[in-house]
Amino acid sequence: MSENELSLRTDSAFEIQTADLSTDLPSLDDAKELPIDLCGNYWTPKHVGEFKKMFFVDIKPQKVLSATNPDELIDLECATFLEKLGNGTVQTVTNGSRRLVGILEQYIANGSLKSGTALKITYMGKRDNKTNRYQSDNWSVRPLRINLSVVG
């Protein structure tokens, strides 16, 4: 690879260009902004029935503030998605609900859920735990069939 060539790296479900930082950097004057915002938006639904249609990316630990000790950072397994907004931009969306992550993990394990799968995720409200000590979020997760044919 020459000094001025850019390489491609796969990062989750989309490819991001990278430059070799040990050589002369290429100009960014004519660089095109991709229609994706890498700043993750943590989705905390407020109303029963609230839903999002998104593409599943992966599940991985993320550093978040502890619910019991706000001065402590903990690793929380979070599901990451890509959501296409009405203006055409794409944003990352994360959610660390133990119940939602658990549902997704079982389908990853059996091979039914892969990065790039389109899903409709609906918040179904709170549900009592078996111990009745607290309530957990309840979810509906439905795969979506998308039309990939070109209209023209």
Rank of each mutant, 00 (worst) to 15 (best):
R9P: 01
L38K: 05
L85A: 14
K84D: 06
N132Q: 05
D11H: 12
D11Y: 15
T23R: 14
Q91D: 03
R9H: 00
S97Q: 04
L82R: 11
E33K: 06
F55Y: 13
G86Q: 14
I16E: 10
N4I: 01
I59H: 00
T23D: 14
E5W: 03
G111K: 08
E77N: 15
K32A: 06
A79N: 02
T131C: 02
K114L: 03
H47W: 09
G125C: 03
W43Y: 01
L38W: 04
L100I: 06
V101M: 02
S27K: 12
A31M: 11
V151S: 07
I108Y: 00
G111Q: 05
T131I: 03
T94I: 03
G102F: 05
T122R: 09
V93G: 00
I108L: 09
G116R: 02
G125E: 07
S66K: 10
C39S: 05
S112C: 09
L65P: 01
S140Y: 10
D128P: 07
V57M: 06
L76T: 05
S2H: 08
Y134W: 08
Q91R: 08
C39I: 01
L6Q: 05
R98S: 13
E50C: 08
D137I: 06
T89S: 09
I103N: 04
I146R: 09
L76P: 01
G116M: 00
K60S: 00
L113G: 04
R99I: 09
G40Y: 02
N132G: 02
G86R: 12
D37G: 06
D29W: 08
I59D: 01
K52I: 14
S2Y: 09
G40T: 02
N138C: 13
A67W: 07
D11V: 15
M1Q: 07
L65M: 15
N138H: 11
V90W: 06
H47I: 12
V90I: 07
N129C: 11
T10C: 03
T80A: 00
D128V: 08
C78Y: 02
F14K: 01
G96F: 00
I74E: 14
V90L: 08
K46C: 10
K84V: 10
M124I: 11
T117I: 06
S2I: 05
N129G: 01
N4L: 07
E72H: 15
A109T: 09
A79F: 03
L100V: 04
S140R: 13
D11L: 14
R99W: 12
L119E: 00
D75R: 09
P143L: 00
P35G: 04
I121W: 02
R145Y: 04
L100Y: 01
E72R: 15
E83I: 12
M1Y: 12
D37N: 08
E3P: 05
S149H: 12
K52D: 08
L104V: 08
S149A: 15
